[in-house]
Simulated scan of single mutants.
Amino acid sequence: MIFSKKMDKLTSAIFSQLSDKKNKLIAEGAQVIDFSIGTPDIPPAPHVIETIVKESSKIENYIYSINDTDELLSSVQKWYGKRYGVNLEKDEIVSLLGSQSGFAELALALVNPGDIVLTPDPGYPIFTVGPYLAGAKIVKIPLLKENNYLINFNAIDEETAKKAKLMVLSYPNNPTAATAPHDFYVKLVAFAKKYNIIILHDNAYSELVFDDTEGGSFLSIPGAKDIAVEFNSLSKTYSIPGCRIAFAVGNKEIINQLKTLKSHVDYGMFLPFQKAAISALEGPQDYVQLVKNTYRERRDLLVNGLNKIGWPIDNTGGSMFVWAAIPPKYKSSLEFTFDLMEKTGVIVVPGSSFGEYGEGFVRFALVQNKEKIAKAIQNIELSGILEI
């Protein structure tokens, strides 16, 4: 059989390699502490679970939900207005079956073969994969530690900027956990308008911002809605990743293009999940604070603990990740990842899997409880892996 040549570049072996190594260690009797995949371990709010159970028992909900219900759109409107001070019309909102599929769909709706798309490096893989599947020419923009992992607009070649169709970015950022200040977004709007570039901002971690800093929406910046759409997900905020509930909001012309494409490739969100989204957005929001506090406590324990044993790590501004430079004796993040796994049972993701500029780092997902984080720190200290 002859398959699409596009598939050749989609083979990412790292997670299967980590899984194989993990299973081997477990079979040998080792205990592992897995910080690799960012799957929330915090239970969803009880009222959200109750809504799913109740609505899933109704026979009438097992139909094609071709369109978002008016009730769902109203909930997103109210939530964006209350939470971010952003006023949305209903034709500026469309649900997604998770942000990941949304990235691919939006790229297919907007990008012609050969169009230039600017993506961050390091970056979440779908930021690049979506445009790649649409036939885009990918230009990766370095996110550097010395620039607080913010895009340096002045470093983007002007000819490239003039030809660019779309820019994808995300703050709080995965994998670097960086956050962006208000003035960065002001510059982003000016840059996008100057060069006529569409902006796709992934705002999946807007509620997971720490140290007395409040997360926001890019669309709150004057002029942003003229050139942008924003993705927002309930997966991490409300710990319901398996429901695949997300939204694209913003410029109505872009949203309309996305709706048209989606009408050909999916039949909309399962009605009980639409009800669950409404329950989450309109229900008690103290659960969100609980989630935020849990990740902040885990971040503090991990970062402070690793610093204490001789692994210097910068604090994390937001998201559910910690981005850590590997010990200087290692030249490869992949080599360090597997050495760490073998010697300590601690599983992380090598930064190189997020792009060229991720080399030299590893990513921790804060998906283990405080007891396991403490155990991981102890294992690392006793292993001697940090010794020069």
Rank of each mutant, 00 (worst) to 15 (best):
G384R: 06
A204I: 13
T119Q: 08
F210N: 04
I151S: 06
D34C: 07
E342A: 14
G250A: 10
Y205T: 05
Y357Q: 01
Q274A: 11
L118R: 01
K78D: 09
S235L: 09
D339W: 00
T176N: 10
Q368M: 12
G102N: 00
E158W: 04
S12C: 14
N251T: 06
I373K: 03
P181W: 07
F364R: 00
N148S: 13
S170N: 11
G85K: 10
V32Q: 06
S74A: 11
I388K: 13
F210L: 04
L150P: 06
E71K: 15
G351Y: 01
K375G: 09
S36F: 04
E359Q: 01
V53I: 15
I385Q: 03
F231R: 06
P272T: 11
L188E: 05
Y132G: 00
K343C: 07
K145H: 10
L96Q: 08
T51L: 01
V367W: 05
F127E: 01
N67A: 04
E207S: 11
K372D: 14
E297M: 10
S352Q: 02
I14R: 03
S279D: 04
D202S: 14
P272C: 10
L340S: 01
I93R: 01
K308N: 13
Y171I: 03
H201I: 08
S16V: 13
F231S: 04
L133R: 01
E282D: 15
A280W: 03
A180V: 05
M341R: 00
F336V: 06
K58V: 14
F3Y: 15
S56Q: 09
E297K: 12
P312S: 09
I37L: 15
V288Q: 14
S101Y: 09
K140H: 07
P142N: 00
K54V: 10
G318L: 04
G384E: 11
E342M: 02
L302Y: 02
A13E: 12
D115F: 08
A204S: 14
L110M: 12
G317N: 09
M7P: 02
T39V: 13
L219Q: 09
T237C: 08
P222A: 03
A177T: 03
S101L: 10
F270H: 12
E356L: 07
D314F: 02
V76W: 10
K187Q: 15
G310Y: 01
F127I: 07
L10F: 08
A109M: 05
F191C: 15
I309K: 04
E146T: 07
S75D: 06
